[in-house]
Design a protein around this nucleic acid. Sequence first.
DNA 1: TAATCATATAAGGATATCATTATATGTCTA
DNA 2: TAGACATATAATGATATCCTTATATGATTA
Lengths: 124, 124
Amino acid sequence: MENSLATLQKVFEALGQEIRLRLFLILCTNSFCVCELEELFHVSQPAISRHLNILKEAGLVTDTRKGQWVFYRANPEELKTLLAGFAEGWREPLRAFGEMEEFGEKIQALAQNPKIPCALERER
Amino acid sequence: MENSLATLQKVFEALGQEIRLRLFLILCTNSFCVCELEELFHVSQPAISRHLNILKEAGLVTDTRKGQWVFYRANPEELKTLLAGFAEGWREPLRAFGEMEEFGEKIQALAQNPKIPCALERER
DNA sequence: TAATCATATAAGGATATCATTATATGTCTA
DNA sequence: TAGACATATAATGATATCCTTATATGATTA
């Protein structure tokens, strides 16, 4: 799991819906197959599969087939690492995240922009 | 900011869209007024205001009016606390989060459910 | 207090997301 | 290898989100 903004965004988006947040937490307690999760959450099997795939794409869960069944489990250690990188990154975002680099000169340019006089009022 | 699933879900949802994730990170570097952010992100002023409000509702940023301008800044310390609580909570989610409690007996019931024989295959 | 500027809210249309039903794929067993 | 079962993908309709334009609110200043 690469520590880029795109990765973080995917993770947050995945956990940003209640059912997926609860799925993730359930899968932190143990592994479960799709039919069990269907039973626990009272939504259709395709809906469960779809949510699991979103969590998987975000690197939050892994799956293993056992015969007919596919068991999912959470991958919290990787999330922990990612969140630690996020917390580290927000201390100096323009350096930490490639996607933020461009803002450096844009922010410089603000000070010269006559349409934006409010910089004088800023408290740092 | 209360450490409930609902709070976490709101935070993740807020950070789950790229523009808001980048807004949050920019606001970690300094405070900015709406018109500056409009310039930095090249989206309309109402769109910026709306995204800022979502971040604010999630407890991720605060705002202060200075004359005509409203300056926003990030609140990363609170987020750090929240994420620490999340990482702590996922170790024992059914106890840590009130919204997860109900799953305790539901999981027990799975073992007795004849429609779900896969439990035997589970690796713990 | 009227005009101006910054920000917030409302309205409306375009797009994305979600849930369900239907179907395809993959695995096991008789 | 045919039938049954578990899961994944496709198709479709309902809902939610996001953007922009238009308008309202709040604050400053002439």
